[in-house]
Structures are given as C-alpha cells and as structure tokens.
Amino acid sequence: MIEFSTWDILRNLLLATRWTILLSLVSFVGGGAVGLLLLFLRISKRKAARAFAKYYIELFQGTPLLMQLFLAFFGLGLFGIDVPAWLAAGLALVLWTASFLAEIWRGCVESIARGQWEASASLGMGRLQQMRYVILPQALKIAVPPTVGFSVQVVKGTALTSIIGFVELSKAGTVVTNATFQPFTVYGLVALIYFALCWPLSKSSQILERKLNVAHRNH
C-alpha cells in the first residue's frame, strides 16, 4: 500500500480549492448581476415584473440548494441537453445567489427615506436616474456589509456541488479519503481550508459594518 504524507493530502486539497474559489467567484459575480436585474424588477412600477421577481425569489429561497443542483444537472438532461457538472453547478449557484442578493439589496433600497425619492422626482429626474444617482449610491453603502457577509454562504454552498460530481474542495476530500483511508485528517484539513476562506470574509464584513457606520449616517 502506498503511504501518503500529510503534505500529499494537503497539496491535492489545495489544488481542488482553486475550483472552490473559482466557482464561488462565478456564483457571486454572476449572482450579483442577475440579482441586480431582479432587484430592479422587484421594485418596478409594473405589477407583472414585481410579481415575477417575488415568485422567483420565493422559489429559490424556498427550496434546498441541493434540489436546485439536481434539477439543473438531471432536469436539463431530460430535454436532451447534456449538462456538464461544472455548468450545472455554476448555473444553480448563480440563480440561488441572485435570489438572496436581490432580497438583501431590496431591503437596503427600501431603507432609503421616501423624501429622497420625492426630492429627486421633484427635480425632474426619471426613475432610472433617481436609482442611479440618488438611491443606489446611498443603498450601496448600507448593502456592503450584508453582501460581503452573504458571500460566506456562497463559499459554503459550493460544497454541495460535490454531489453532482464537480471536483472542488469537498469532492477532492472524498476522493483523497478513499485513497488514504484517513478521513479525520483529510476532512479536518478540508474544514480548515473552508475556514481560511470564510473567516476573512465574515471578519471584513464586520469591519466594514463598523467603518461605514451604517446606523448613524442618515442626514
């Protein structure tokens, strides 16, 4: 039987971590873009647009991410579309992330005082101009801490994609365990790597929250 040193294990896990990071980034950036679109629909003046965004958000927040991954992976296969694991993983995570970011950001937009909308409207601005120049710059400041905080959930969410066969950190952990028969060491290291990714994110969320002094800057 071949002996594996701890370094062998760690090296393989770190190589797989690249995919966890990449998938997290794709989900977060893609989810941010889709989320922004959803946000605009959610606060639109059109009833149909608002309803669409509302049901989208309820659907994606109300079902397990795992089911969404399965549906993206197996469901599209039913229509004869061959979906590789990385695509299904990316797609499901983007859509899932978008539903949460849209709702976080809606809260931030709605926390901006009505008077800001009224003042900008009475100066002749259209709705998009109000959003672009008056509401979003203020909402963004409030949105930064919870958004960064949510990115932790995205990183941890990528672990689920191991189930549909995407080889990221968790899947690599399983593979390495099967070869080394050292589950405690391997999963211990996996957990540590996740922690090393997530902890700085939650910490920076806290620091940003204090720095932007969200509660005490309104006028």
């Binding site: 005082a113 008077g115 800001q116 009224e118 003042a119 900008s120 009475s122 100066l123 008056v134 710059p137 203020q138 400041k141 800057r217 309104n218 006028h219």
Partner: peptide, 13 residues
C-alpha cells in the same frame, strides 16, 4: 415648479 420640503431632503452622499 420647484419644491422645497419640510425635511430638506438633501442628498446626504
């Protein structure tokens, strides 16, 4: 027509 409000409503940013 311009409008001025009780709460000023300046853009704080």
């Amino acid at each position: 027509v311009g409008m001025i409000f009780q709460q000023f409503n300046l853009f704080p940013h």
